[in-house]
Simulated scan of single mutants.
Amino acid sequence: MSEDSIHTEFLVIHTKDKQDKMVKKPLRILVKKSLENYFLHLDDSKRVGNLYQLVLSELERPLLDTIMQYTRGNQTRAASIMGINRSTLRKKLKRYGMN
């Protein structure tokens, strides 16, 4: 699926810049800045070997929480909105203790 066909215009955070103007920051920019900050402050002795899983878990938990609130706990509807199988959703909810 190309980025053009995915509607990401609502995946933004509105913040104020130094001149107190409202600025839209897409989620991908915030994730990138967080990763840059991670690498900037990385201590070789504390390096993790599972960064991919760490980042996914940081995104996945709030996604699951929000989608389950939006669907009022309807797992079938939540799975459909997320584009995943209901059993996959149940597995992910269990992983985060959200069942």
Rank of each mutant, 00 (worst) to 15 (best):
F10W: 12
T71S: 07
L89T: 02
A78P: 01
R28W: 12
K94C: 04
S2H: 08
I13E: 08
R95D: 14
S57D: 15
L64V: 03
Y52L: 08
T71L: 02
D17M: 02
K33A: 13
R47Y: 05
S45R: 12
M22L: 14
S45L: 13
L93H: 00
T66F: 02
Q19N: 11
L89Y: 05
L54V: 12
K24Q: 05
Q75Y: 02
Q53Y: 09
Q19G: 03
S57P: 00
G73A: 05
T15L: 12
G97D: 11
L51K: 04
T8S: 07
V55H: 03
T15I: 15
R61F: 06
Y38A: 02
L40Q: 15
M68L: 03
M1C: 06
H14D: 10
Y38V: 02
D65F: 13
S87G: 00
V48R: 09
K91N: 15
Y96L: 10
H41S: 14
L42C: 11
R90L: 07
L27V: 11
V55D: 06
E60Q: 14
D44E: 15
P26C: 01
R47V: 14
E36R: 11
P62L: 06
Y96K: 11
S87R: 14
L42Y: 08
A78C: 05
L11I: 02
M1N: 04
E3S: 10
D65W: 07
M68G: 00
I67T: 11
H7R: 12
L27M: 14
G97S: 09
T71D: 00
N99G: 05
L64G: 04
N37L: 09
S34I: 03
L56E: 11
K18D: 09
P62I: 06
F39K: 08
T8F: 06
D43K: 09
I84T: 09
V23F: 05
D65A: 09
V12D: 02
L51C: 05
R90K: 15
K16F: 01
E36Y: 11
L30R: 06
L64K: 02
H7Q: 14
R28D: 15
D17E: 13
S57L: 04
T8M: 12
Q53A: 10
K94V: 09
Y52K: 12
L27I: 06
R72V: 10
K24Y: 00
L89V: 06
R90S: 15
T76G: 08
L51Q: 10
K92R: 15
D4Q: 14
S5Y: 04
V55I: 13
I84V: 12
V23R: 09
R90V: 14
R86Y: 07
Q69M: 12
L27Y: 11
K25I: 15
Y96M: 07
S5W: 07
S5L: 10
L35T: 02
K94R: 13
V23M: 05
T8C: 07
V48L: 05
L42P: 02
L30Q: 13
T71Q: 04
L59E: 01
P26T: 00
I6T: 15
Q53F: 06
K21E: 05
E36S: 11
L56G: 08
L30P: 01
S80L: 02
R28K: 13
V23A: 03
I67W: 06
M22G: 00
N74S: 11
D44N: 11
K94G: 04
H7L: 10
L89S: 02
K94E: 14
Y38L: 08
K91D: 13
E58C: 08
M1T: 03
